[in-house]
Amino acid sequence: DHWEIRVGDITIHLKDVDEEIIRWVEEALRNGDDLEEIKRWVEEVLR
């Protein structure tokens, strides 16, 4: 699977990601969370 999350001008590409993570990231972006923080979290989860 390949996911693209778009929020404003930001697009995040994710592969082999659980839908729950996608929802979490979308929510975090909508809440204005720091992008670097989100990326770190996702990388942590995917490890």
Rank of each mutant, 00 (worst) to 15 (best):
R30E: 04
R30H: 06
V45S: 06
T11N: 03
D16N: 13
I21N: 01
D34P: 11
L46P: 00
L14N: 01
E19A: 11
I5E: 01
V17A: 08
I22K: 11
D16Y: 10
R6A: 02
I22Y: 12
E43N: 10
K15N: 08
I12P: 01
G32Y: 09
E19M: 14
K39A: 06
R23V: 05
V42N: 00
E44K: 13
D33I: 15
R30D: 03
W41L: 05
I38D: 00
I10D: 03
I12S: 01
D16E: 07
D16W: 12
D9F: 12
R6F: 03
I12G: 02
K39N: 04
G8N: 06
L29P: 00
I22Q: 07
D33V: 15
R23S: 04
E27K: 15
H2L: 12
E44S: 07
W24I: 05
L29H: 01
L14T: 02
V42W: 05
R23Q: 05
L35F: 09
R40K: 10
G8K: 03
W24K: 08
W3T: 04
L35D: 03
E37G: 10
V45I: 11
V17L: 09
I12Q: 02
R47F: 03
R30V: 05
E4N: 08
R6L: 03
E19D: 11
V45R: 14
D16T: 11
D34F: 12
R23E: 02
I21M: 08
V7R: 05
D9W: 10
D33F: 13
G32D: 04
V17M: 12
G8M: 06
V42P: 00
H13V: 12
V25Y: 02
R6Q: 04
W3R: 03
V25P: 00
I5F: 13
D33H: 11
E20F: 15
K15C: 09
K15G: 06
W3Y: 07
V17G: 05
V45L: 13
I22V: 10
E19V: 12
D33R: 15
W24Q: 06
I38H: 00
I21L: 09
W24S: 03
H2A: 09
D1A: 14
I38S: 00
I12A: 02
H2M: 13
V7D: 02
D9P: 09
R47S: 11
I5Y: 04
R40V: 02
D33W: 15
A28Y: 10
I22H: 04
V17D: 03
D18H: 07
R6Y: 02
N31L: 10
V7S: 03
I21A: 03
E4L: 14
V17E: 02
D9L: 10
N31F: 07
R23I: 04
E4W: 14
V17Q: 04
D34W: 14
W41N: 02
K15P: 04
R47Q: 10
G8C: 02
W24V: 04
E37S: 13
R23P: 01
D34K: 08
E37R: 12
W41R: 11
D18I: 14
E20N: 12
I22P: 01
K39R: 13
E37D: 12
E27P: 00
G32N: 06
R40T: 04
D9A: 11
R30K: 09
V17R: 07
E4T: 10
L29G: 00
E36G: 06
E43C: 15
R40C: 00
L35Y: 09
I5D: 01
E19I: 13
W3C: 04
L14K: 03
E19L: 10
E27W: 15
V7I: 12
V7L: 09
K39D: 02
E27T: 13
W3N: 03
E44D: 08
T11Y: 13
G32M: 11
G8F: 08
D33Y: 13
T11M: 08
E4F: 14
H2W: 14
A28E: 01
I5C: 04
N31T: 06
R6T: 07
D33L: 15
K39W: 14
I10W: 14
G8S: 05
I5H: 02
E37T: 12
V45F: 15
D16V: 12
V7M: 06
R40W: 02
E26G: 11
D9K: 06
L29T: 02
V17C: 03
I5W: 10
R30I: 06
N31Y: 05
H2S: 11
L35C: 00
R30C: 02
E26P: 00
I21R: 03
V42A: 03
V7T: 02
K15T: 10
E36N: 08
I22E: 01
W3H: 03
I12V: 10
E4P: 03
V45T: 07
K39M: 14
V17T: 06
D1V: 12
R40A: 07
D33M: 14
N31K: 12
I10F: 14
T11A: 09
L14Y: 06
E4Y: 14
G8I: 06
D33P: 10
A28G: 04
E44N: 09
D18Q: 10
G32K: 05
